[in-house]
């Protein structure tokens, strides 16, 4: 399964080499060319010489992860987060360190030994460590160095009623959507960009857009979803299974109103379910792309992901399929001249 190959590959911000090679192998048979830019973005062109609206679609290939910053005398590894991670989700989670996937476990004081006060407070990131079973500092340093990175060791599998559980669905599910789109042919210049360093401040997308000079840009992103217990309607953000989500305003973007209306019109014409993201927090690469050069039209299409930025995330395969259908329909409509810029 494509989602399994993508989500199980390693790629914290700045360390996207492994995931990029996985994606390159998937994209290469279908793209005219695949180039890596100086930041590490993978830019896949298809029909770049075609007349028509230059379209950039992007998904970020990096994932939230951890970086080893210090090795203790007893061989335990101290770490910091790369991207936004709630330290409360980390305790006791298995991780994989470095390109050879060395296993480790995030450790903490067991409940038996905690004082009443300690039990009442969540542990901070500085109190946690990764245990790789090393005897001592030298033993640990023989296999791990400060600056090495780690990701969650979560196996991807389909679960329940048409759902998928994995790490890094944010945003490997977007990468999968782009790869499915690359298999099709459109009569327009198409640039599918797999970007780096989104999770630490949308750093890759801007330079890629500056290079490509798109007329329209669409970011495909995994987004927050909290349609569960105790969440009021205006606190859910999105609902799983209710279709791809569009942004009206997030932490860094106000919707490009004309493009939002275009997205809605396409979804309704093709009878594809959609929802509006009902939360201001969070952001995606379109924020960076929109402000390149003279400004770029476009928006984001988001796939709801429960437990985003946590070790095990859940998405709906219906939402995934509907996102592919929607992006395909949007490109067909642009191809047919329905987007008038």
């Amino acid at each position: 399964m494509l989602l399994k190959r993508l989500t199980e590959a390693m790629g914290p911000p700045g360390f996207e080499d492994d995931i990029r090679e996985v994606i390159r192998a998937e994209a290469k048979p279908f793209a005219d060319r695949c180039d890596t830019d100086v930041l590490g973005n993978l830019i896949c062109e298809k029909g770049a010489g075609n007349p028509g609206v230059r379209v950039m679609v992007d998904a970020h290939m990096d994932e939230v992860g951890l970086m080893i910053v210090h090795v203790e005398d007893n061989g335990l590894l101290r770490f910091r987060a790369l991207g936004g991670i709630d330290p409360r989700v980390l305790v006791s989670k298995p991780v994989r360190i470095g390109r050879d996937g060395r296993p480790g476990v995030i450790g903490a004081k067991p409940v038996h030994l905690q004082s009443q006060e300690e039990r009442g407070k969540p542990l901070k990131m500085e109190q946690l460590y990764i245990d790789i079973g090393a005897r001592d500092k030298d033993d640990a340093l023989a296999v791990v160095q400060p600056g090495d990175v780690a990701v969650f060791a979560t196996e991807c599998e389909t679960i329940g009623d048409g759902c998928v559980k994995a790490k890094s669905l944010d945003d490997r599910i977007g990468c999968a959507v782009l790869l499915e789109i690359l298999k099709r042919t459109y009569r327009l210049p198409l640039f599918a960009v797999f970007t780096v360093q989104e999770e630490i401040g949308l750093r890759g997308a801007g330079p890629a857009a500056h290079r490509i000079r798109p007329d329209v840009a669409i970011s495909v992103e995994g987004t927050v979803c909290f349609d569960v217990v105790d969440a009021p309607g205006h606190g859910q953000a999105t609902v799983l299974g209710r279709g791809p989500a569009f942004t009206v305003q997030d932490g860094r973007t106000l919707a490009d109103r004309r493009f939002l209306e275009f997205l809605i019109a396409v979804a309704e014409k093709y009878n594809i379910p959609y929802q509006l993201r009902r939360v201001k927090g969070g952001s995606n690469n379109f924020a960076a792309i929109q402000r390149t050069r003279e400004g770029v039209a476009g928006g984001a299409i988001s796939v709801p992901v429960r437990y985003i930025h946590a070790p095990a995330q859940i998405a709906s395969l219906d939402d995934y399929e509907h996102t592919i259908r929607l992006l395909d329909a949007v490109l067909r409509e642009i191809e047919a001249g329905a987007w008038t810029g």
Binding site: G233, H234, V248, Q249, R278, V279, K280
Partner: peptide, 12 residues
């Protein structure tokens, strides 16, 4: 940002 079933509007 949200319209409740009883007709009230939520804001950001």
């Amino acid at each position: 940002i949200h319209i409740e079933d009883n007709g009230f509007l939520r804001l950001i």
